[in-house]
């Protein structure tokens, strides 16, 4: 759902070529792709495996860079930012949910959720208070002291969502967030993400090849062989 029509992220002529080490020939995964993401909208990028949807998501979210083309975030050209500035941008304004939960095994659910706040320089007590509130909101009150290995797949993914939103980001990038979950847990995760989009106005950019999940988005774009279909 689009709350206002201002552009948050704008990708211009994005081309991505992967080259094997020592090889001159490359694999062109994205071919001059344009995309505008509006503030507060929920956008789904769909496509078959190898279509380039995850690569595009990584480029939009500063986790990777384009071979050609550039991305503007809130009007700021990301190619002109230093690595430190990109790190700060990710920490302050972006949240990530991946197919695999990517939680840190040596830390409890609560500590994992505290991480973005601690990286930002928050005190341990403040970070713990904020993280605990979000875990409670997501129904994980009883799981906060558990390590990732002691959580179910759905719980781990919800902890990952809690970690993604604890800094109240402007946008959440979700890369196949339900890909590793059964139908029931998949539904729970989907509902959480859409609630965040609707109730908090967080922009949601998701990548999936799951039609059922994709159908719930107001705007869906499909990639095929590195180009919009």
């Amino acid at each position: 759902m689009t709350n206002d029509k201002s552009i948050l992220i704008s990708a211009k002529k994005i081309t991505k070529v992967f080259r094997a080490q020592g090889s001159l020939e490359g694999l062109e995964v994205l071919k001059s792709v344009d995309l505008d993401v509006y503030r507060g909208e929920a956008l789904c990028i769909m496509g078959n495996s190898g279509a380039g949807k995850s690569t595009l998501l990584h480029i939009l979210s500063t986790l990777d860079s384009a071979t050609i083309g550039h991305v503007l975030f809130a009007g700021q050209d990301l190619s002109k930012l230093s690595q430190a500035a990109l790190s700060q941008l990710r920490n302050q304004k972006m949240g990530f949910v991946f197919q695999f939960h990517h939680l840190l095994n040596e830390f409890t659910a609560l500590e994992n959720v505290m991480m973005p706040l601690l990286i930002a320089g928050e005190s341990f007590s403040n970070a713990a208070r904020s993280a605990e509130k979000i875990l409670n909101d997501l129904g994980l009150k009883d799981r906060k002291s558990h390590r990732p290995s002691a959580l179910s797949g759905g719980e781990a993914q919800r902890v990952a969502i809690a970690r993604a939103i604890v800094r109240e980001p402007q946008v959440i990038f979700a890369d196949e967030p339900t890909g590793n979950l059964d139908q029931k847990n998949g539904q729970i995760v989907q509902n959480v993400l859409f609630d965040l989009n609707r109730k908090r106005g967080v922009t949601l950019v998701a990548v999936t090849h799951d039609f059922e999940f994709g159908r719930r988005f107001p705007r869906v774009k499909t990639l095929r062989d590195g180009q919009w279909f």
């Binding site: 430190a84 790190s87 990517h102």
Partner: peptide, 16 residues
């Protein structure tokens, strides 16, 4: 390597 990727995704700069 995995943890480093996670820390970087969460916004931890390279020098830290």
């Amino acid at each position: 390597f995995g943890d480093i990727g996670i820390f970087k995704a969460l916004g931890m700069p390279q020098w830290r």
